[in-house]
């Protein structure tokens, strides 16, 4: 599903953002990507959704090999992914419903099918009642739910979440995290970058830890955390 093989990523101004990173994420897995800010979590995700090119090594995502992915293939790749950010990235001048519908419209979905699909995902994230609200009328947790609904509406095989709870209070964090777990339970792989270790400890999911661009721990391969020689 997602496979990194000896991936290096150089910063444009020199230095390495990722050093020799290899891992494999299978279909339907839930993976935490952890590490301090600047450890390379976001870079891993950006490589996955082809926001940035790989410097060397190979990244394979859902059948695409990103080194030779042409620019016009990128939209096709992204339609198989759902992406969620810390800052939600909603369009302020569109309602929740329109924000979600937008993701279908840009991919050329059949117009007649759009309202029903939008309502289905909004119901799934628990926001059907606020379909006509604008982002500014919603709380942070609700905005993130809209963003998740938008990521889900194209029925992705993987949901990428870059610090999805970073801007949320504890209550909203729990809600959004539970939603991601539910999504995973229904078969969608979830890769969640976070530095919230409480959250990581709460769930028995696989953990990949990065430190200064290097993969220092992968719970699927390494010894359990307590005995691992990591700081």
């Amino acid at each position: 599903m997602i496979k990194f093989t000896n991936v290096f990523k150089a910063f444009p101004k020199g230095g390495l953002a990722l050093k020799d990173v290899s891992f494999h994420i299978a279909k339907g897995e839930f993976v935490f990507l952890t590490g301090h800010s600047g450890a390379g979590k976001s870079t891993v995700l950006k490589l996955v959704y082809a926001e940035e090119p790989v410097t060397s090594g190979e990244v394979r995502v859902s059948g695409f090999t990103l080194a030779d992915a042409r620019r016009r293939d990128i939209p096709k790749l992204r339609r198989r992914l759902g992406i969620v950010f810390q800052d939600f990235r909603l369009l302020e001048d569109r309602t929740a419903e329109e924000n979600v519908a937008f993701a279908l419209e840009v991919t050329g979905a059949r117009r007649a099918s759009i309202p029903a699909r939008v309502m289905r995902v909004l119901t799934q994230v628990g926001l059907a009642a606020k379909a006509h609200a604008y982002p500014r009328e919603l709380s942070g947790g609700e905005q993130q739910r809209v963003a998740i609904a938008r990521a889900l509406v194209n029925e992705p095989t993987v949901l990428l979440a870059d610090e999805p709870t970073g801007n949320l209070d504890e209550r909203a964090t729990r809600g959004v995290f539970q939603l991601l777990r539910d999504i995973n339970a229904s078969g969608t792989a979830v890769v969640m970058a976070t530095h919230d270790l409480d959250l990581v400890r709460q769930a028995p999911y696989r953990v990949i830890e990065l430190q200064e661009g290097a993969l220092v721990y992968d719970s699927a391969v390494d010894e359990p955390r307590d005995q691992a020689a990591s700081p």
Partner: peptide, 16 residues
């Protein structure tokens, strides 16, 4: 530009 970035994230082609 923000809107353009979001369009591209959700898989809009350049032409779109």
């Amino acid at each position: 530009s923000r809107e353009i970035a979001i369009m591209r994230l959700v898989g809009a082609t350049d032409g779109f």
